[in-house]
Amino acid sequence: MADTKTQVIQTYEGHPTYSCLKCAAVITLQDELISKAFSGRDGRGFLMQSAVNVKLGRREDRSLLTGVHTVADVFCLGCNERLGWYYHKAADHMQKYKEGKYLLEREKLVKENAWVLDE
């Protein structure tokens, strides 16, 4: 059964964001970045405090580099692209800081800035 945690926000006008590479839906503010020193399935990953315009897949126990975690894959609401995963629970007490956070894969995101260019 799919987890029902879904958040939708249309825009973060004036704030730097990360957006879905495939459909350009805003996924998170760059200010939500906790760490760039993570690994995803397909390369480097970002640990993020929060994400929007995403839906979660089903929970499962997954053996990751830092041990077993209960996670759910994260999918873009705009195009259903898998973007990473959400940490529900960590077995190791040293990994508890990840609980409630998102691992988003760098290769699935576009970094959008809020620059205004003079014409």
Rank of each mutant, 00 (worst) to 15 (best):
C76D: 11
C76P: 12
C76F: 14
C76H: 10
C76Q: 13
C76Y: 13
L77A: 14
L77R: 12
G78D: 07
G78L: 14
G78W: 09
G78T: 10
G78Q: 12
C79P: 08
C79W: 06
C79L: 05
N80S: 07
N80K: 06
N80M: 00
N80G: 00
E81I: 12
E81P: 04
E81G: 08
E81W: 11
E81V: 15
R82P: 05
R82M: 14
R82I: 09
L83S: 08
L83C: 06
L83K: 13
L83P: 06
L83A: 05
G84V: 04
G84I: 06
G84M: 10
G84H: 04
W85N: 05
Y86E: 01
Y86R: 02
Y86D: 00
Y86I: 01
Y86Q: 01
Y87D: 01
Y87T: 02
H88C: 00
H88G: 01
K89F: 08
K89D: 09
K89M: 08
K89I: 07
A90R: 10
A90T: 07
A91Q: 14
A91E: 14
A91H: 11
A91K: 14
A91F: 09
A91I: 09
D92G: 03
D92F: 04
D92T: 09
D92S: 06
H93R: 08
H93D: 06
H93E: 05
H93L: 03
H93I: 03
H93K: 14
M94E: 12
M94Y: 13
Q95H: 14
Q95F: 10
Q95S: 15
Q95V: 11
Q95D: 13
K96P: 01
Y97C: 15
Y97T: 14
K98C: 05
K98P: 01
K98D: 03
K98E: 03
E99H: 14
G100W: 05
K101I: 06
K101G: 10
K101E: 10
Y102D: 03
Y102S: 06
Y102A: 05
Y102M: 02
L103A: 11
L103R: 09
L103N: 15
L103Y: 08
L104H: 02
L104W: 04
L104G: 06
E105Y: 04
E105A: 06
E105T: 01
E105R: 09
E105I: 06
E105Q: 09
E105P: 01
R106E: 11
R106D: 10
R106H: 06
R106G: 01
R106Q: 10
R106A: 11
E107L: 11
E107P: 02
E107S: 12
K108F: 13
K108R: 15
K108I: 05
K108C: 15
K108M: 15
L109F: 07
L109D: 03
V110R: 03
V110N: 11
V110M: 02
V110D: 03
V110K: 09
V110A: 02
K111N: 00
K111P: 00
E112P: 00
